[in-house]
Every structure is written in structure tokens, then in C-alpha cells.
Amino acid sequence: MSKNILITGVSQGLGLAIARAVLAAGWNVHGVSRRLSAEFAALQRGHAGRAHFHAFDLGRVDAVKAELCEPFLPLALPLHGFVNNAAVAYDDLVANLDAARLRAMYEVNVFTPMLITKHVIRQMLLKQVAGSIVHISSISVHTGYKGLAMYASTKGALEAFSKSTAREWGERGIRSNCVVAGFMDTAMSAGLTAEQREKIHRRTALQRATSPDSVAATVVHLLGDGAASITGQNLFVDSGTI
């Protein structure tokens, strides 16, 4: 059966890799990001009628219902999965913490995904869909990294949210899991120096960056019927951080 999968942050990096993997699984993508990238547009051309796109700035928490959910995800659309991938990273020492930047990061990484989850669950209830919610978390939640305390706290919030979402909606067959991704060579970690990268890689069993395609394949598994008994879990795809 084909599925409709909502994915945020599809313009580049991991979100694009997830969109590609979801399309390869034969399912439809409903992608959201601030702008339509050339890469996602190419996916749309290659999968006629199966890769939908809606431009929305996920920092606009108060506009989620009117400008994202109502126009792009009408209640009549059966939604089988939601991949909460979009995130921003505000990296700094705790001693330099800036409230405005912290708030802006929480809006994108935590508040908007929670509101989208509300809408997604309502759609699943209406259409009686035993759907799957997947949050992309980060290894920084479980292993401390200098400069990532604020960012890691947003992902930790999502892990807690996912756990109770799983408990709350399990009796309706709705599942919620987190994929805990290790450091990937994507735009989000572009600010790291070669030395910093090397140091991070040395902290993993595989001694290398996490592959976005491996993370994407795990997401596809969690979205699929093969994961029907997996919920409330954190799956680590992180090159074996030690």
C-alpha cells in the first residue's frame, strides 16, 4: 500500500536523503522547507505526482495551522507518517547563552514539530490510520560535546516528547520513535574544523562520519509495516559512538 509521508527540512542534507529513500520505497512525499531547492525539484521531476512541496518557515509557530497544515495537509488527506527532520543549530558556550537565539532554535526544533505532531495525530484519528512518527534526534543528547548544550537540549526535549506520544497513542496503533543520528557531513556541521571532525570521528567505533543514507534507511524502516511493533524507542545510527 502506498503511504503519504510528511517530511520537514527536505531542501538538502539528511531531509533530502530521507525524501529520496521514501520515494524509493514507493511512497509519496509531502515535503516542507523554507525554499524549494534544485535538488528537491529534481526529485519532483523524477517522481511525477509523488513528491509534493510546500514552502514554510518552521520558525513561525503561530502560523503552523493556517499556513502549513490547512493549505498543505487538509484533514481529508490520509497521512501515514511524519518525519520531523528540520532543525537549526545554535552552537555556543553556555557562558555566552543568548535568550533570543535560544528561543528561535526552540521554535524550529521543538515547538513547531510538536504542533505539527498534534495535527498529524488528528489526521490519523480521523482516517483511522495506524501511522508512524519519527523524530530525528542527535547523539549530542547522549554524549556531551562542548558548545552543543543548547542544541542538545532541544533534541532531548523531542526524545521525551516522543516517548510519551508513543505511550499516549499506542492503543490507536500510532507509533512514535526517534532516530539518534551521529555527526554527519551535512550543512549543519559545516562550521566544524577538520580537527574537530577528526576528534568526533575518533569517538566512534567505525571512526567515521555517520552516513545520511544509513539514517534515511532506518527512518524508512520505522515508517514501514516491518516496524509495527517498534514504538517509544531511540534507535542509534551514529557509527557506534563510544
Binding site: I121, R122, L125, E168, W169, E171
Partner: peptide
């Protein structure tokens, strides 16, 4: 409570 949530969304639709 979950039934009421379902009723809510049916009424909203």
C-alpha cells in the same frame, strides 16, 4: 479522553 479527541477532530472536519 482519546475518544473525545477523535470526536473533536470529526466535528472539526
Amino acid at each position: 479522553s482519546l475518544d473525545l479527541a477523535e470526536l473533536t477532530v470529526r466535528i472539526e472536519e
